[in-house]
Design a protein around this nucleic acid. Structure first.
Lengths: 133, 133
DNA sequence: CGAATCTAAAGCCATAATAGCCTCCTGATG
DNA sequence: CATCAGGAGGCTATTATGGCTTTAGATTCG
């Protein structure tokens, strides 16, 4: 389970955008949060690809929520923003190399799955609505 | 909220150590988990400083749990292992620079605190016992 | 008791991944 | 067609990850 600044910035952005009446461009948002503009832009683009945000080009363009806060869960947000490293235990005992040589390691898999399940359901049930209301 | 491999390795180590009858040295543990020995050693040392593990030097030495699984909560584990970056939103609106010039940013503080509280209590209530039982 | 050995503890250094910066391109607006 | 903002990629700086060496405490054995 790896959580980087990308997830953090994504959540901050969603909070700000949830109270915005019009699309907000990435530069304004980055100044609002005092973070890197171009890094934030990539994060917003990832959220837009996931249909969590909608992007508007041209004058008065920017990003706006594309779903209601209750439809936006943190697991989806983090997973799409973290890209290749979603909220899972990915290192250590890989399932593939489990049965054969490393029998001694296999026995921790059930525990990891259990932990992963608890974390995932916590994040999946935590929506933007829970935060801003 | 940053969670790196250090937290992941810490949890994996605690799971393995919870079923060990004797102290396990960092080299054995690193082979068991197929991860870096020296990096793991630093993590185990951090856990030992927090009294979560107890270290034994000399022949047949190593690390062993110093608490019962129900006493070991994930918030403490992650906080001590991540060091300077515990499980908090640390970037963005710092409380200090809030009241003055950046009034427009202040209004997201309550939301962040609320989110932080939810995450913290989830992690604080999640103990090693929840994982291994 | 003292030497040899084992392992934690702690530092420094190299590499890999993340975070942040800049530029060009594309589509939308007026 | 001029302007504005998203989309995409490359490049640099920072931080995390991992490797390596040295020091110190603890145990075993002669």
């Amino acid at each position: 389970m790896l959580i980087t600044r990308a997830s953090e910035y994504a959540i901050l952005s969603l909070i700000v955008l949830s109270s915005a009446k019009e699309p907000m461009d990435s530069e304004t948002l980055s100044k609002e949060l005092t973070i890197s503009k171009s890094f934030l832009a990539k994060i917003l683009q990832a959220l837009a690809k996931e249909k969590i945000l909608r992007s508007y080009k041209g004058v008065k363009g920017g990003f706006a929520l594309n779903k209601t806060p209750i439809e936006i869960d943190m697991l989806t947000v983090m997973t799409c923003v973290e890209g290749k490293t979603p909220a899972v235990f990915e290192c250590a005992p890989a399932e593939s190399r489990c049965p054969s040589e490393k029998a001694n390691i296999c026995n921790i898999w059930p525990f990891l799955n259990k932990l992963q399940g608890k974390i995932d359901s916590f994040l999946a049930e935590l929506t933007l609505a829970d935060i801003i209301d």
